[in-house]
Computed example of a mutant assay.
Amino acid sequence: MSLAFQQRRHQIVGDCRQLKMDVDSYNDNRLPVQPIQMIFDFTFDLEELALAA
């Protein structure tokens, strides 16, 4: 199970990396007045989901 969890975490990190690259590309190419900022700290999201469960 430990290996499975490590693999799943690695997949999530890969998704976050791709999201960051997408946001960076958008900001670099579109030059919005307010660039999109992504926060990759999911602590509050996880706490909120735990409370809703």
Rank of each mutant, 00 (worst) to 15 (best):
P35K: 06
Q18V: 09
V13E: 12
N27F: 04
D22I: 11
D15W: 11
I12F: 14
E47T: 06
N29T: 12
L19R: 06
D24H: 08
M21R: 07
Q18H: 14
Q37S: 11
R17H: 00
L3F: 05
Q34P: 01
Q6V: 03
S25N: 14
F5G: 00
M1K: 09
F40I: 00
D22C: 09
Q11S: 10
D41W: 05
F42I: 12
A53K: 15
L51K: 14
A52S: 11
M1Q: 12
M21Y: 05
C16K: 13
D22Y: 13
D45Q: 00
D41S: 08
R8D: 08
F40M: 01
M38F: 00
Y26R: 03
Y26W: 06
H10N: 13
F5A: 04
V13Q: 04
V23Q: 00
Q7R: 15
I12P: 06
S25H: 12
D22R: 10
R9C: 02
F5K: 10
I36W: 01
D24M: 04
Q7Y: 14
R30V: 07
V13T: 11
R30W: 07
I39A: 06
D41Q: 09
A4K: 12
Q37D: 13
D28S: 10
R30C: 07
V23W: 01
L3K: 15
A52E: 13
V33H: 14
T43A: 07
N29C: 09
A53Y: 15
Q18I: 09
R17E: 09
M38W: 01
S25A: 07
A50T: 01
N27I: 00
D45L: 05
H10P: 07
Q37C: 07
M38K: 02
N27V: 00
V13R: 12
Q18F: 09
I39W: 02
V33S: 15
Q37A: 08
R8T: 10
A50H: 02
